[in-house]
Amino acid sequence: MITFREVSKQYKAGRQWIEAVQPTSLHVEKGQIQGIIGFSGAGKSTLLRMANLLELPTTGEVYIDGQELTGLNAGELREARRSIGMIFQHYNLLSNETCAANVEFVLKAAGLPSRERKRRVEECLEIVGLADKAKQYPAQLSGGQKQRVAIARALANNPKVLLCDEPTSALDPVTTLSILEFLEKINRELQVTILLVTHEIQVARRLCSRIAVMESGEITERLDMNHPEIKPVTQLGRFLFDSAEMSSSSSVQQKGEGYRG
């Protein structure tokens, strides 16, 4: 569903060239949830942002559902982006518009007629459980609710792929869990393939079927989370998983249980 073929990204910072992502390949099957973890500056966000060409790769190709994005013209790329939803750490909602208008914006931009837009807005807000907040402005919502509006917006055009750039990094653990539940539900019920970037290993472990570990612009380790035994070999992989082992039983899960009960 998502294929990066030898993509790399270099950019100029002052006088010197910085290699944000070294030539990297990654393939995500339809219906999977692929995580990319690593510390800040590892290039994971840059890699994610190359999936819808918000960041143009210096070299290499990007394919979504068999279509090569890197070979499209501007109009075709806009069309293709409609089937790629995206959510961000800081939600990026229109602050002067209501929640409903935020969702409606992407439908209007896709050229949907007014009546269908209204119906779809209701449906999407329903999916994230915010139908009652339709007329409110983002400033009146909590962080978790804002992210749910952003999810509704990302789902509006029935995307095949959902890109998540640190979607829970600005949220507390309980809210994080509820957002993860929504993402799981979307993946399961709507068959949306998810590519998620996070530095929170708990989030990746909870959600992802596969995890790629990134370090200084390279994928250094690929883990299959459905495998009975997960044995990270890289130092970073082990560090992330060991620290997760230590706190997994205490923090997120316990709070999660409390939240559910």
Partner: peptide, 13 residues
Amino acid sequence: KGVIEAAVASGAP
């Protein structure tokens, strides 16, 4: 910038 970026990512003309 992020708000503009979200619109670009949604394929808005």
